[in-house]
Design a protein around this nucleic acid. Sequence first.
DNA 1: AAGTGTCCCTGCGAGC
DNA 2: TGCTCGCAGGGACACT
Length: 279
Amino acid sequence: MPELPEVETVVRDLRAARLVGRRIVKARVFWRKTIADPAPTGFAREIRGRTIQRLARRGKFIVAELSGARTLLVHLRMSGHLDVQPAKTRPRRHDRVVWTLDDGRQLHFADTRKFGRVWLVRNPAHVLGELGPEPLEISSAALAAGLAARARQLKPLLLDQTFLAGVGNIYSDEALWAARLHPQRRSDRLTAAQAADLRRAIQAALRKGIRNLGTTFGNGQTHFVLPRGERGRNQEQLNAYGQTGRPCPRCGTPIRRILVGQRSTHLCPRCQRQPKESR
DNA sequence: AAGTGTCCCTGCGAGC
DNA sequence: TGCTCGCAGGGACACT
C-alpha cells in the first residue's frame, strides 16, 4: 500500500529514469474509471504533445508538471504501480493507462484493484487543495496546535489526509508504537511532550521508510514494488504493523491487532496503554 | 464535529 | 484439485 515513503521512492525512481524533458506522444486508456478528470477521450487528446517538465510528490500524489500549463496527477491508492517499459512493449493484464514517450519508451500505470486514479488538470489545487501539511515539513508547534484543535482518536486523525498528507496505515502504526501512544488516545489530550514525541516518531518512521525504499508485501501484484521492479526492504524492519502475535521489540509483549475506525491497527498493549479518560 | 457503514475492486489464503 | 468465502485497504460519500 503506497504511502508517503513509497510514493517518494517512485518519484525518485521516475526521475532516475530521465522522464523529465520527454514529450508524451500518445496515451492509451484501458480502464476508463482510472481517469478521474477529464473524460478519457479528452484525457488522451489533451495530454498528447506535452513535455514532462518536473516530477514531484505531494502527500501520496505523484505530480508531473507538463508543458502548456497542465499537471498530471497520479494516486496509486492500493495496488497502483508505475513503471517505464521499452518501446513497443505490449500492454499487460493490469495496465490501465499507457503513455508513449517521444523516445519510444512507455510509462505504464498498472493497477490490479483499479482503485488508482489519474487526473490531467490546469489547476492542481483543484485536486490537492484539501491536503494537510507535509509530515516531514510540519513544525512542532503546528502539529501540536492541530492535535489540540480536534478531539479525534489519534490513528484516524493521522490517516486523515486533510490533517497530514501522506501517512497511511503502516507508518501510522509504526509512529504510534515508537511514540508509545495508544491509537485511540484523544488528540486534544496529549501533553506537549507527547505531541513532540509523536512528530519525531512520524518523521523517523517516514524517513526510515524512504531510506529502505518503501515497504513491500506480497509479490508486487497486489502490493508495492518499485518502478524498476525491485522490492523495498522496510517490511523487514517493522516494529508493530503486521507483527500480530510477535514480541514487541521493546518489551516482548505480543503485538496485538485491533480495529480502529474499520482499519486494522497494530500495537503493543503494554507500551501503548489506553488511559481511562480517553474513552 | 466525530464516528460508522458502504462502496469501489481483485488476489489470495483459509476452509472444506 | 477446485471450489466458495472473507479479508485487505485509501478514500469518497451518506448518514447518525
